[in-house]
């Protein structure tokens, strides 16, 4: 089991007037090769949750396990954990600092203590993987466009060759074409054999891409399961300020109007076919 979390509770500044409970008894499992979506608002605790995946936030022993290693134990080698779990934060382009793209991407591998030849190989591969032109390697990251900068930042994490990649809102702030390209990139990273966890606000995006979803609300897991299982709760989701995909909304409306629509249906193709079945008498 790559990531296993058992009843994780996290309180910020305990014992002060600023005490805040960010997470309350959150449990989750992520299996090898899965594409997991985590959905929730600002302040739902999702940033705190993903910070636990690679030990940036520490828990008590016996709560957070990565590949069987207990991250709560004092003597756990954190660098080894960060080699396994790559974390791409929101707006990661703001963490770039080196003179050239190649040097910036090399930062992670260098911290892992790899030799120069290996670093060079990994940088070249990461640049290719995120779809940047090889000529970008010697440019300053600050000359690139916003979308390209973000790709450099993702390449910097991929160069550590994590087996689990966590991305917090990878498409935030991009234009529609940029969003599409970014989600394609995440999809291709997953297809290359990496376990992916994507934090997102967009039910459309997670519905299209993810195998399973966890919906966080006020530090607790409100719903979990396959997208279809989660989208069944459309009204509860709406109450906590999250929308189901448009097609799922249409399916509900049609069901209420006497159409025969399967529960939890949300993909456009499925909704289209269900409508056609209803109108053409099952043809």
């Amino acid at each position: 089991m790559p990531v296993e979390i058992k009843k994780l509770t996290h309180v910020y500044m305990p014992g002060t007037p600023f005490e805040a409970r960010a997470l309350n008894e959150v449990s989750l499992n992520i299996r090898d090769g899965e594409f997991i979506g985590i959905i929730g608002h600002t302040g739902s605790g999702k940033s705190t949750l993903i910070s636990h995946f690679n030990g940036l936030e520490r828990s008590q022993p016996g709560v957070v396990f990565v590949n069987g290693v207990d991250l709560g134990e004092k003597d756990t080698d954190m660098i080894a954990v960060r080699r396994v779990v790559g974390l791409v934060f929101q707006y990661p382009e703001y963490q770039l600092f080196e003179e050239t793209v190649a040097k910036d991407i090399a930062f992670g591998p260098r911290n892992l203590g790899l030799d120069e030849a290996e670093i060079e190989r990994r940088v070249a591969r990461a640049i290719e993987l995120v779809g940047l032109d090889a000529s970008a390697a010697e440019k300053s990251p600050f000359e690139l466009s916003g979308g390209q900068k973000r790709r450099v930042a993702i390449a910097g994490v991929l160069a550590m060759q994590p087996s689990i990649l966590v991305l917090d809102e990878p498409a935030a702030g991009l234009d529609p074409a940029g969003r599409r390209d970014m989600l394609e990139l995440v999809k291709s990273i997953h297809a290359s054999g990496v376990t992916v966890v994507m934090v997102s606000h967009s039910m459309d995006d997670v519905g299209r891409l993810c195998d399973r979803l966890y919906v966080l609300n006020k530090g607790e897991i409100a719903f979990s399961g396959t997208p279809a299982e989660v989208f069944v709760h459309d009204q509860r989701l709406h109450e906590i300020g999250l929308d189901v995909p448009e097609c799922a909304k249409l399916a509900r409306k049609l069901r209420e109007a006497g159409y025969d629509m399967p529960e939890g249906i949300y993909r456009m193709e499925d909704v289209r076919d269900a409508i056609l079945r209803n109108l053409n008498g099952g043809k």
């Binding site: 529609p176 074409a177 289209r272 409508i275 056609l276």
Partner: peptide, 20 residues
């Protein structure tokens, strides 16, 4: 133009293509 259209617009197009 690098933009998107609302989901319902896409769906209605697909349904029209199927003869609705």
């Amino acid at each position: 133009l690098g933009l998107d259209v609302p989901e319902m617009m896409k769906l209605s197009r697909q349904l029209r293509d199927k003869g609705l």
